[in-house]
Amino acid sequence: MLSSLQIDALREMSNIGCGNAAPALSTMLNRRVDMQIPNVNILPLADVADSLGGAELVLTGVFFQATDELTCSILWLLKQESVTKLLSILLDSEITSKPPYSSMEQSALMEVGNILSSSYLSALSTFTGLKYQLSVPALATDMAGAILDIALMQLGAYSDQALIIENTLCDGDESVEATFLLIPDVPLLERIFELLGVA
């Protein structure tokens, strides 16, 4: 169980990460981007997909793994409407993109994910003094449940509960909404609590 102090510390940490990612997205889209208050969710593994809209909801996920000291999984989740809108802004086209996305469209989405994850983690690294190495992005458009498997697997090795830090970025008119999931592994969590003096 986490104390409310520990949950606050994680929320603050995620605010710092997203506080750095939001302007990066804003620059890319050339429009205002707002950041919602982060949620720190602790829930049974079996309930994670439901908390994100159901295991069969079709989402696009851009997945990263960070290694070295900041060991975590990062998953950016976008609903189909957001992907369509995001692609029309990025590729400056009127075409309505639908899955399966072309390799050009996939590259554009992965590049957005890459910039967001890098800016998030670099802020986190400055804040905690922990080093990280970010993987290349990987993309999938499929059922939410299936996309989440890999991100939850590493937690599953330690516990039946998932700790997920969820943060949503959306542009001014909320037509592009990206949900950011940070899933720290258990050793990292312990380390962060120690560093922040809330162990």
């Binding site: 295991a55 499929d142 059922m143 449940g145 299936a146 996309i147 989440l148 890999i150 697997m153």
Partner: peptide, 16 residues
């Protein structure tokens, strides 16, 4: 587990 007309369902299997 189930029997008779029971149907068992699981949604969104990925690597599982």
């Amino acid at each position: 587990v189930g029997w008779g007309d029971d149907v068992l369902r699981t949604l969104g299997l990925g690597s599982c």
